[in-house]
Simulated assay, not measured.
Amino acid sequence: MRGRGGGNRHAESRDPGGASTSARRTLRDKVRTERYVPRMVRHGFRATVPLLVLATMLSGSSCAGDPPSLSTPPTQMIPSAGVPRSSGITVTPEQLSISDPCGLLSPPALSGFGRVSIEPGSQFTTCQGAISLADGGTASVSSEFAFRPHEGASLTPVDRNGVTVYDAPGDSNGCSRYIVVSDHATITVTAGLARRPDLLCDIANAAIDGMLPQLVRGGLQPADLPADSLGEQDACRLFDHTEIRRMTGIDARQVHPAFNGQGCEWNTGTERGPSVLVSFRRTTQPKIDERTDRAITIDGRTAIADPWVGGALKLPSCEVQLVHPPLDRPTSVREVEQLSVSVYTEAPEESNCVPAIELTSAALGRLPRG
């Protein structure tokens, strides 16, 4: 099964900037570097899984029995921006948490480069723009709300119209600019995918200049999501460490929330240790396109269980992707909100599907019905 942009979700390579080439690795990294903002999570029902599918998966389960609960909660890992707040802005982290990242990308500010189109990103905290350049090529530009600038970025503070903007050196892969709203909230603008790398930093700067008036006066466009949207939920509030251990056998020592509660990872604090990853995203309807994929239904919701054998960087895993109420985008592309639950343990990949399905069922019972 492949992610939003195509390609193999299980690839382990990274680009020079530290970003992942796989949707799963990208989400896992985001959970470790983005912001936690509490959201309301509603009560509900317990979902069920077809007995034939569940019986098949249980035959290889590594989670027999219910381990005793842990008394010590895991440590919440929320990274810091590592640089001072940008001067000259009045916008607050609270405003950012309820704002639409697409409201910050201004087509008029970018129109000097070509025809601009803007649409929501696959994460509720991202927005994607495409620019049809005058020379026939294309470029991309994105805005993203995150905990901090990209890990390892070399930052230079630059004054742009009275606002401190943190510049990172550009290269042929992209160019990023950062507005630091607080120690745990950052606006990232990145330009990339152009045949003319010399334009990338100019595009990023233009995008920043286009959003500065909103940031200075503190008036941001609200996200305006329905109350039952996954974009209004908090993944870390779906489970506590005792449930994670009971359902998976994993003794979580750390919890890594994503910005605005849009993902959460429970792990043992080691790079290749067992973990549980929950994330929310906007994407196309999941499809079976690998031999190991399984179509399942959980309380009437379409879902796919996707086991994987693991690799040098990741343990064997199973990801369950479950469809939330569909979305209609301006481009008329039929998309869905998706709950993704992945379990990584040192066990046959099929065995990981049992706790992944159980966790997904429990999560569905705690999310609004939609």
Rank of each mutant, 00 (worst) to 15 (best):
R2K: 01
G7W: 03
R24G: 02
R28G: 05
R35P: 01
V41Y: 04
R42Q: 15
G44R: 06
P50G: 07
T56Y: 14
T56R: 12
S61G: 01
S62D: 03
G65S: 02
S69M: 09
Q76A: 10
I78A: 10
P84E: 14
R85S: 11
E94W: 14
Q95I: 04
S106K: 04
P108Q: 12
P108V: 13
R115L: 13
E119N: 01
T126G: 00
D135K: 07
G137S: 11
V141F: 09
E151P: 08
G152E: 13
A153S: 15
G162E: 11
V165S: 05
A168Y: 02
G170P: 01
Y178E: 03
A185E: 08
V189R: 06
A191L: 14
A191V: 14
L193T: 11
A204R: 11
D209S: 10
P213S: 03
R217D: 14
L220W: 03
P222T: 06
P222H: 10
A223V: 02
P226I: 04
A227N: 06
S229Y: 05
T242R: 15
R246Q: 11
T248G: 03
D251H: 11
H256K: 00
F259C: 04
E265P: 03
W266H: 09
F280P: 05
R282G: 02
P286N: 09
P286Q: 08
P307K: 11
W308P: 00
V309W: 08
R329Y: 03
V333M: 13
L359N: 07
S361Q: 14
A362D: 11
A362F: 11
L367N: 12
R369T: 13
G370R: 06
